[in-house]
C-alpha cells in the first residue's frame, strides 16, 4: 500500500494540472496516526477558488488508496510564496510552456517599495529560450499567472508571476 504522503503528493493542482500539490509547494504536512490521515495545505492567494477543489481531490485520492478517515486542514501562515515551487515543478512548468517564477527570497522588513514601472524582464521564453520578452498583462486566466510575449519568436506565453 502506498503511504498517505505519497498519495497526497501526487494529487494534481486543479489550475496548473502539470504540477502536483507537492510541486506547487501548497502541501505542507501529511501525518498518519492509527489510520487517521491529516493533510495540511496552504492557499496560494486569499481568494484562490481552487482551494476547495484541492481539498476534495485530496480526499478522493486518499479514499481511492484506502484511506477513509481523512482531514484536510488549511493553514494561512506562513503565507505561500512562489519560492516554494520545487525545482521539479519549475521544470514541468517550462516544459508545459509556462515560464516559471524567478526566486525572490524573503521580503525585507519595512514598507513595501512602490513600482512605478513594470519590473525589468528576467523571464525567458519557454519556447525559444530568448530573454527578449515583454509583459502584456500582469493578470491572466488565473490569479497566479501573467501574460507575456516573446519578442524573438513572437509567441505569447504565460508566466507564473512572483509572489
Amino acid at each position: 500500500m502506498v503511504t498517505a504522503r505519497e498519495v497526497a503528493e501526487g494529487v494534481l493542482d486543479p489550475e496548473l494540472p502539470v504540477l502536483t500539490l507537492a510541486d506547487l509547494g501548497v502541501l505542507r504536512e501529511v501525518t498518519e496516526t492509527a489510520g487517521r490521515v491529516v493533510v495540511t495545505i496552504t492557499p496560494t492567494y486569499s481568494g484562490c477558488p481552487a482551494i476547495d477543489q484541492m481539498r476534495s481531490d485530496l480526499r478522493a485520492s486518499l479514499a481511492g488508496a484506502g484511506y477513509r478517515d481523512v482531514e484536510v486542514r488549511t493553514v494561512l501562515a506562513p503565507a505561500w510564496t512562489t519560492d516554494w515551487i520545487t525545482d521539479a515543478g519549475r521544470r514541468k512548468l517550462a516544459e508545459y510552456g509556462i515560464a516559471p517564477p524567478a526566486r525572490i527570497g524573503p521580503r525585507p522588513a519595512g514598507p513595501v517599495p512602490l513600482n512605478l514601472t513594470p519590473p525589468p524582464s528576467r523571464v525567458r521564453c519557454p519556447r525559444c529560450g530568448s530573454a527578449e520578452t515583454v509583459e502584456l498583462s500582469r493578470f491572466s486566466a488565473t490569479a497566479c499567472r501573467a501574460l507575456r510575449r516573446c519578442e524573438s519568436c513572437r509567441e505569447p506565453f504565460e508566466h507564473v508571476k512572483e509572489l
Binding site: 492557499p43 492567494y45 486569499s46 494561512l76 501562515a77 510564496t81 512602490l114 513600482n115 512605478l116 500582469r138
Partner: peptide, 27 residues
C-alpha cells in the same frame, strides 16, 4: 490575533501589486 496576522501577511503581497497597478495606470 493569529487569524488577522495571517490574513494580513497574505494580503500584503496582494495589495502590493494592486497598488502598483493603480499607480502605473495613474501615470
Amino acid at each position: 490575533d493569529p487569524v488577522l496576522a495571517a490574513v494580513a501577511a497574505k494580503g500584503v503581497k496582494e495589495l502590493a501589486y494592486h497598488r502598483d497597478h493603480a499607480a502605473q495606470w495613474t501615470l
